[in-house]
Design a binder for these strands. Structure first.
Length: 594
DNA sequence: CTCCCTTTGAAGTTG
DNA sequence: CAACTTCAAAGGGAG
C-alpha cells in the first residue's frame, strides 16, 4: 500500500509499455512557446554516408528489453541489487543497424551532433534575420555555405576520435547563440576558450581515484579523448569541459543528505543550489556513486572557493550545491567514498572550516523549493539557530537522479563549453539526442549509476517517497493540456494547420509557419526548406534530423508516452508523420532519408 | 520573482 | 493495469 516502499521493491525491469515513439511534429508545448530556445534540427546527416536510420524506433515491449549488465568486473554493480530498480535501456535498434549507427555516432557523434545543432541554430536565426532567408537551405545562406559544407554536408572526415570538433565556432554577431572558440585562437585547440574568470584550484583526488586515473575514458572511450586530454593539459582551455566527467565520490555521496537525526553533525549547510551561485560553466557534480561505479579520471577538478559569493565551496565543482552533514552511518554505507569525507581538503570547504560534517549536498533544499545560496557568514549564523530553523522547515529531499539526469549533469558543461549555449532547454535537446546516440554500454553505466543512486537514496531516506515532493512544483499541466486541446492554446500542428493565425515567437518557427503549404508526411522530401530546416530539421538533402524534432515530438511527458492511435488523433492528420515505414517513432528520431 | 522551456526516466496518481 | 502526471537538473527567457 505504501507507495514508495512497494514501488521500490518492485522487481527489476518491470515490463512497461513501450515508450511511445513520439508523435512527429511539433509538440503542443514547444509550439505554445515556440521560443527561441528551440533547437532547430540540425541538418541531418548530410549527404555523407548512408542516411542514418531513424534512431529511436518503436520500442519493443518493455519486457523484451534487458538492462545490459556492465561487464565492469562487477565492480559497479557489486552490491546486490535489492532495489530491483526498474532501470532499463531504451529500445535499441537491431543490433546490426545499431552497430552501424553507433560506429557512426560514437565516432563522429557528439561533435557532429553539436555541429549540426549549431548549424541549425544558425540556420534558424539567419533565416529569421534574413526574413525570407531560407534556413533550410543551410548552405544556401550566406556563410552557411561554409558552415553547411563543413558541418552538415559533404562527406564527413573520417570519424577520427582525435579530431577537434568539426564545427568551428566563431563569433557570429547576428546569432542568438554566441559561438565559442574562435578559430584564430590558437590557445584553445579545444572546442571552447576557457572562462578567464574562473581560476581553478586543484581538487583533491582520492588516491583511489588517482589510481584509476585513466579509467575515466571508459565512459566515453571513443569520444573526445584528445579533447579531454587537451582540456586537462591546457588549463586555459579547461573550462570544465571534460572535467565534468570526473564524478567524484564526493559529489556522488553528496547527493544525499543524511537521514534525519542520523548524524552527529546535523549541521547541514544551507544548500548552495542557487543558479546564481552556479557559474555558467560549472563542472557538473555527479553523485558519489559515479566514482564508485565508473572510476573517474583523476583530473584535478578545480576546487573552487566562490569568491564572488564569498561562500566556501569546497570542491567547487561549481555545481555542488547544498551541504549536508556526513554521518557515520552514511559513511558506513559508502565505504568507497569515505575517504572523501575525511580528507582535510574536504573539510576545508565544508562551509564550516575544519568541520568535517558539512558537505555539499544538492538533494536537500529548503522547503521553499528554492535552493538558496547563503553567504558564508550567514551560514555561520549560530548553528543551533539554523539547525532549529531547518528542523522546523524540514528541507525537501529531492528525488534521486535518473540515468538521463545523471548524464545531463555530466555532459551539460561540455555542451555548454562546446557551443556556448546556455539555454538549458536547447542544451537539453542536444543532450537528449546524444543520450540516444550513446551506446548500450554507455547508457548502461548511467542506468547503473542511477540505480545505485536510488539505492543510496533509499538507504538514507527510508521513509522518503517521491510523493513527498508531489504537487510542489506544477499543478497546471492538466489545465494547460486542456487548454491546448480546447483551443485555449494551440500546438504547433494546429498552428501549422492554419499558419495565418499564430504569432510564433521563434523566428525559425515563424518562418516555418509562414510556409505556403504545410508539409504532408507522405512526402517528406518535398517539404519546404523553411519548414524542414527550421522545424523538423530536415535538410535540403531530404533527410530528417532530430534535434529540433526531439523537442517537437515531446510536448509533455504524457504526450511523449502516448503512442496510441487515439493519442495520435490529437494531431492534425495531414501533419502526422508517415504511418508506414519509420513511423512516428522514427520521425521523432533522427534521420530518415529522402 | 515565478514560471516556462526542454530532455529522459522514475514514480506517483487517476480512471 | 494503462494512461497520465509530476519531479528530478539547468539556466536563459518571458511575464
Amino acid at each position: 500500500m505504501f507507495g514508495p516502499a512497494s514501488s521500490r521493491s518492485r522487481s527489476a525491469w518491470r515490463p512497461r509499455p513501450a515508450p511511445a515513439a513520439r508523435p512527429g511534429g511539433v509538440s503542443p508545448r514547444s509550439a505554445r512557446r515556440a521560443s527561441g530556445s528551440e533547437v532547430p534540427t540540425p541538418g541531418s546527416p548530410p549527404a555523407g554516408p548512408a542516411p542514418r536510420p531513424a534512431l529511436p524506433r518503436p520500442a519493443p515491449p518493455r519486457a523484451e528489453r534487458t538492462m545490459p549488465q556492465l561487464d565492469s568486473g562487477g565492480g559497479g554493480a557489486g552490491g546486490g541489487d535489492d532495489l530491483g530498480a526498474p532501470d532499463e535501456l531504451l529500445a535499441f535498434q537491431d543490433e546490426g543497424e545499431e552497430q552501424d549507427d553507433k560506429s557512426r555516432d560514437s565516432a563522429a557523434g557528439p561533435e557532429r551532433d553539436l555541429a549540426e545543432l549549431k548549424s541549425s541554430l544558425v540556420n534558424e536565426s539567419e533565416g529569421a534575420a534574413g526574413g525570407a532567408g531560407v534556413p533550410g537551405a543551410g548552405a544556401g545562406a550566406r556563410g552557411e555555405a561554409e558552415v553547411g559544407a563543413e558541418v552538415s554536408a559533404g562527406p564527413r572526415p573520417a570519424p577520427l576520435a582525435r579530431q577537434p570538433p568539426p564545427v568551428p565556432c566563431w563569433p557570429r554577431p547576428a546569432l542568438p547563440v554566441p559561438w565559442g572558440t574562435h578559430p584564430s585562437d590558437p590557445s584553445c585547440p579545444g572546442p571552447r576558450a576557457p572562462r578567464p574568470s574562473r581560476p581553478s584550484r586543484p581538487l583533491w583526488i582520492s588516491p583511489q581515484a588517482l589510481g584509476r586515473e585513466h579509467a575515466s575514458q571508459r565512459l566515453f572511450p571513443d569520444k573526445l579523448p584528445e579533447s579531454l586530454e587537451d582540456g586537462l593539459k591546457a588549463p586555459e582551455c579547461a573550462s570544465g569541459m571534460y572535467k565534468d566527467t570526473v564524478y567524484s565520490a564526493f559529489n556522488l555521496l553528496m547527493h544525499y543528505p543524511p537521514p534525519s537525526g542520523a548524524g552527529q553533525h546535523p549541521q547541514p549547510q544551507p544548500p548552495l543550489h542557487n543558479k546564481a551561485s552556479q557559474p555558467a560553466h560549472s563542472v557538473p557534480q555527479l553523485s558519489p556513486l559515479y566514482e564508485h561505479f565508473s572510476s573517474p579520471h583523476p583530473t584535478p577538478a578545480p576546487a573552487d572557493i566562490s569568491q564572488k559569493q564569498g561562500v566556501h565551496r569546497p570542491l567547487q565543482t561549481p555545481d555542488l550545491s547544498g551541504f549536508y552533514s556526513l554521518t557515520s552511518g552514511s559513511m558506513g554505507q559508502l565505504p568507497h567514498t569515505v575517504s572523501w569525507f575525511t580528507h582535510p581538503s574536504l573539510m576545508l570547504g565544508s562551509g564550516v572550516p575544519g568541520h568535517p560534517a558539512a558537505i555539499p549536498h544538492p538533494a536537500i533544499v529548503p522547503p521553499s523549493g528554492k535552493q538558496e545560496l547563503q553567504p558564508y557568514d550567514r551560514s555561520l549564523k549560530t548553528q543551533a539557530e539554523s539547525k532549529a530553523e531547518k528542523e522546523a522547515k524540514k528541507p525537501t529531499i529531492k528525488k534521486p537522479l535518473n540515468a538521463f539526469m545523471l548524464y545531463m549533469k555530466e555532459m551539460r558543461a561540455k555542451v555548454i563549453a562546446e557551443c556556448t549555449l546556455k539555454e538549458s532547454a536547447a542544451i537539453n535537446q542536444i543532450l537528449g539526442r546524444r543520450w540516444h546516440a550513446l551506446s548500450r554500454e554507455e547508457q548502461a553505466k548511467y542506468y547503473e549509476l542511477a540505480r545505485k543512486e536510488r539505492q543510496l537514496h533509499m538507504q538514507l531516506y527510508p521513509g522518503w517517497s517521491a510523493r513527498d515532493n508531489y504537487g510542489k512544483k506544477k499543478r497546471r499541466s492538466r489545465e494547460k493540456h486542456q487548454e491546448s486541446n480546447t483551443g485555449g492554446k494551440r500546438n504547433a500542428f494546429e498552428l501549422l494547420a492554419s499558419p495565418a493565425e499564430p504569432a510564433p515567437t521563434s523566428p525559425g518557427l515563424s518562418a516555418a509557419l509562414s510556409l505556403p503549404a504545410p508539409w504532408t508526411p507522405t512526402d517528406p522530401p518535398q517539404r519546404p526548406a523553411e519548414y524542414t530546416a527550421a522545424t523538423t530539421g530536415i535538410s535540403e538533402t531530404g533527410s530528417l534530423a532530430c534535434t529540433g524534432h526531439v523537442a517537437a515530438t515531446r510536448g509533455s511527458s504524457s504526450e511523449r508516452k502516448r503512442q496510441s492511435p487515439k493519442a495520435r488523433g490529437n494531431w492534425p492528420e495531414a501533419l502526422l508523420p508517415p504511418s508506414q515505414g519509420p513511423g512516428p517513432g522514427d520521425f521523432r528520431g533522427c534521420t530518415t532519408s529522402a
